[in-house]
Nucleic acid binder design. Sequence first.
DNA 1: CATTGTCCCTGGAAGC
DNA 2: TGCTTCCAGGGACAAT
Length: 271
Amino acid sequence: MPELPEVETIKNALERCLAGRTFAGVRIIDTRPVQRLSPEQFCNGLVGRRIIGLSRRGKYLIIGLSDGSNLIIHLRMTGALLWNPAEEEPFTRLEFFFDDGSRLVYTDVRRFGTMYLVTDPTEIVGRLGIEPLNGRFTAKALAGILKSRTIPIKSALLNQEHIAGIGNMYADEALFKAKIHPLRPAKSLTPAETRALHGAIREVLKKGIRNHGASIRNYRSPDGKTGTAHEEFAVAHRDGQPCPACGTPVARIVVGQRGSYFCQRCQHYRK
DNA sequence: CATTGTCCCTGGAAGC
DNA sequence: TGCTTCCAGGGACAAT
């Protein structure tokens, strides 16, 4: 499941592949991912445009084009972008062809992924909250986000309108690192806990990027490889395995309809 | 406004 | 072995 570190990894890899290339064609096998535009409008808007640069906002990948428009892609759960795959990829939904004969293949088993072609990116990403790796995301900023909210802290971290890019895996990892129970009301965190969580969020995301993302399910980087971040997860998707800190088996509960992994001992429910 | 619930989608796992 | 049912989950949207 691509979250911030996975999308950042994809962006970095695709930058090297795509920079300066011009779209020569688009093959839409499944129209579902293409939002707002007809397949014809989508193709016509891309063909002939050169790629200026790539960026990321939350879990969205933004590909800037020479005419000022932007191709914005969200991979949701199982979307993947593969650069010049050697073999035919299963679940291919769409293919982009470039002027030099290279191609970018979009696969998505569950067909939840979306793509947009817009002039103004804020149309799509304008509602997103603060970037957690931006310097403006301080412990104080986090405190401001949490102070009035009664929802479980885990749910608050997953709300993209508060903080952009944290998904299920990294929320669990950050809460473990800060020793906070996922069900604690967001507003109940002490200043010390808020500072710990702020640092933990930044650390787990940076570590995820260093390890080129986590491959819990279908995530692959554009070269087809899997990341290694999941190998160093403490609790995420590790129910029953020993907590790296105390050895207690990792527990799984459901918080806001999402499976949540944590250590009942290290993340004891206080207050 | 804040919060909760439903839906989308499909392969793989679990159950019978 | 083979069929059926359940589950995962980001985010849009509706309901409360």
